[in-house]
Nucleic acid binder design. Structure first.
Length: 118
RNA sequence: GGAGCAGACCAAACGAUCGCCAGGCCAUUAACCGUAUUACGGUUUUAGGCCGGGAGGAAAGUCCGAACACCGCAGGGCAAGGCGCUCCGUAAUACGGAGUCGCGGCAACGUGAAGGAAAGUGCAACAGAAAGGAAACCGCCCGGCACUCAAUUUCUGCGCAACUCUCUUGACGCGCUUAAAUAUCAGUUGGGCAGAAAUUGAGUGCCGGGUAAGGGUGAAACGGUGUGGUAAGAGCGCACCAGUUCUCCGGGUGACCGGGGAAGCUAUGUAAACCCCGCCUGGUGCAAGACCAAAUAGGGGAGCGCUUGAGGACGGCCCGUCCAAGCUCCCGGGUAGGUCGCUUGAGAUGCUGGGUAACCAGCAUCCCAGAUGAAUGAUCGUUAUCCGGUUUUGGGUAACUGAGACCGAACACAGAAUUCGGCUUAUUGUCUGCUCGGACC
RNA sequence: GGGCCGUUAGCUCAGCUAGGCAGAGCACCUGACUCUUAAUCAGAUGGUCCAAGGUUCGAUUCCUUGACGGCCCA
């Protein structure tokens, strides 16, 4: 298994999964993103992305999603434990640059990792 | 070089590393099923390798038109909605091409929902006399009546001036002032004043009639200019111009254009107001629709059972104890979820031919995204483009301009969602052709 | 993806059908009443009628295009 792969098994795609995370999960925020996370059922950490129409038009939303995926792809090996994480973009993310989003997401992932007890 | 008009094209390129999506081939983990059972095949699933492919000119807005799917439908009409110069193109259109006419622009050119206002109804605020098949407020003209004014003529009275006359500078005084008398108490001419009458003219008011030339209005005022004409005027007549209807000739497939004649003087604007005429339209939309199908609840059927105990709990099983009226199976609808629809098509590219063009025909070659919490990316490097600044240098008197180096910054609008054909809107840059009036040499 | 509706004063809405003056309530401001405030009464201010273009003498109103906001459909 390649180190930096990121397939559909690493992602949250079902509507029921999103509902379960938002009901049971905990929240983290900074200026660009809100993270909702809970312990995962599977043996790997999975990522879900939510970008609403408030954030921008379709091109802007696609760009934000790609940057989030790219950051998770490079960072997920460092995250201990198995989590289901939903990243929700805020309106401020429309104007943010790639470096700003990367540092913001890295901070969020480190905070989630700190919650890992076992 | 400036201002502007039209058209076409592009949507930075290459490389490295790490990745994403669907497909094909290879290959692998696990589970299940089948058979001719240490094997082979199938389905689902796990990790991976190779191959070639992977956003747009607007993918956008959803403003039109279709394909396709389901529902509805004997046929016809009404209603409702849409469209509206002509011809052509097209599967079709509210689209495109070529034209006609109107409008805008010096021009290149642009632009127009451009049928009918002499079928009918409505509306036209304010202002203005009047806002629509004309009427008549002012005005102009004619006639009558009343009043006022002016001029002329005649008559009467009273002064004045000049001349003549005279015994008297015709004064003063007295008397009279009804008539008359007294008396020298004049005469002629000129002009003035007052009164009366007549005539003429003017003005004011009222009444009756004619007229629409003119009237600080208005977006728009019932053809325009000139001339004759008339009481005053008027298409009332005439000339020219503009417009309407009818008609003839010629050109054009046609919208329409050119020329001639007649009538009649006129007919406002608005139909993106109602409306009339002609033509078109069944509805809903891939979240259409077809198929597979958990869990829970409910429906139908069959079997077993209701104290002679089905079934459940305790338990590995039997016995036993307790609870107990329902339990099991099948069927169909159908939700979550999934599969199909789903990309070979009014297809793309090239050549040839037809046509002014839109477009069409023939031949050859090619297969070119199919995702569904939704795939095309991230980082780095090099080069190119554009912008700003600094600077070197060539041309030119100058305005200006060509080439190069360095630094910085920028690289737009924007992401397929059943598929096509258009329209509209957003937006970067390049090129070509054309128009206009200037400056410099 | 598809369908439907709306945008008028600081706020909530009329007016648009049938074109010509832009209005109501609340709020804000001023004055009166009151010892003061509230309530009440009187008065005044306040508008690119979402934007652009067209039809018309004239557009909030009619037409076209766009922007923004909202609702519905599995």
């Amino acid at each position: 298994m390649r180190v930096f792969s990121f397939t559909k098994a690493d992602r949250i795609l079902k509507h029921l999964d999103f509902v379960r995370i938002s009901k049971k999960g905990k929240r983290l925020q900074d200026t660009y993103f809100t993270a909702v996370y809970s312990t995962g059922r599977l043996e790997r950490t999975r990522l879900g992305i939510t970008v609403t129409k408030k954030v921008g038009n379709a091109a802007v939303r696609n760009r934000i999603k790609r940057i989030i995926r790219e950051c998770f792809r490079l960072e997920k090996q460092k995250i201990k434990g198995c989590w289901d994480i939903n990243i929700i973009a805020k309106k401020a993310a429309e104007a943010a640059g790639t470096d700003q989003m990367f540092s913001s997401l890295q901070g969020i992932f480190k905070k989630i990792e700190g919650k890992f007890d076992n």
